[in-house]
Design a protein around this nucleic acid. Structure first.
Lengths: 166, 166
DNA sequence: ATTTCTGCAAACGATTTGCACAGGG
DNA sequence: CCCTGTGCAAATCGTTTGCAGAAAT
């Protein structure tokens, strides 16, 4: 499934690039492969690391220069999670209207869609004299899993990773 | 009305400060006066400028050190508008659950509340196994005023200000 | 008197940019 | 061949911090 997605992304990006007179390069290839290879959110540094695992020659500057292209092309979305760094979400290709529910305690992120909310937003927007363009909802809460059990899978995974990273 | 608000803020902040063993200083006074003197959103630099108009001695460092206190005390809220800098909203004291509707074209910001949306959010959150904590909704759209008339009041005000600032 | 606060300027971390060379079309 | 893309390192921008003196309580 991820491979299939990657194919669609490649095609779509290729159209975007050639439409703008821009070029396909191995570095950009590596970067999109890294960006759409998983459905995790990531920041520039994460992406650099992943892209370099695919192609050693990818530099930080190229990552920073490629990210805006991916956003402009509509393949990637910049989401505001309130962490210090810009975070990118590769999942808007499949679910263009999804929202984020975040656990304040373990930082688990759940993506969800809701038709009622879509509808309500549209109504509100029009009622206030606007034509809807895009919307973003971020809900913070406490996940039951953690509250009930004192720990949760996400938290453990996170802690394990922190240990690895140093 | 703004004066009344300012009084409430002072009192509330005073309680917060003394509760933490922190002190009331002229600089902090100037900063809260600047922060709650209007209902505009602002960033650190805006606030510095406004605070210095009240008390020349206010420094950038003090502004940056005071902002987190105001946020922690619940008087001020950091909102994510996707501009490069952190933006603060002084209007959550009066309307603790309000949301933002932003015009993509003129950057006008409309604050709104909606009980249905509140309710819906709560339902969704619980359904997904979370206890609600806080939420933030940002809707982007095109304002009719600008679309219909080719210009709008907000845009003109903005342009006038840009000219002033340099 | 004892802390907390302050301004200053240096440090910081994420992101951007100028440059000279590399390499796609 | 022309023009865009690249890596590198320096620059930038918002924000944070160490320090020595100032000032609340």
């Amino acid at each position: 499934m991820a491979t299939d997605l990657l194919e669609r992304v490649r095609k779509s990006l290729q159209e975007f690039l050639s439409g703008k007179g821009l070029r396909r390069t191995p570095q950009r290839e590596a970067i999109i492969e890294a960006a759409f290879g998983t459905d995790d959110h990531f920041n520039a540094e994460d992406l650099l690391k992943r892209a370099q695992e695919i192609d050693r020659s990818v530099s930080r500057a190229t990552v920073y220069r490629t990210l805006p292209l991916l956003v402009e092309s509509g393949l990637l979305r910049e989401i505001e999670l309130g962490t210090g760094t810009k975070v990118y979400d590769p999942n808007f290709i499949d679910r263009p209207t999804h929202n984020h529910l975040i656990c304040v305690d373990c930082n688990k992120i759940i993506e969800f869609e809701d038709t009622n909310m879509e509808l309500l937003e549209n109504c509100i927007t029009r009622r206030l004299g606007f034509s809807p363009a895009s919307k973003m909802i971020k809900i913070e809460g406490h996940c039951d899993e953690l509250k009930r059990q004192g720990s949760c899978e996400h938290l453990r995974t996170r802690e394990a990773q922190e240990g690895t990273r140093g």
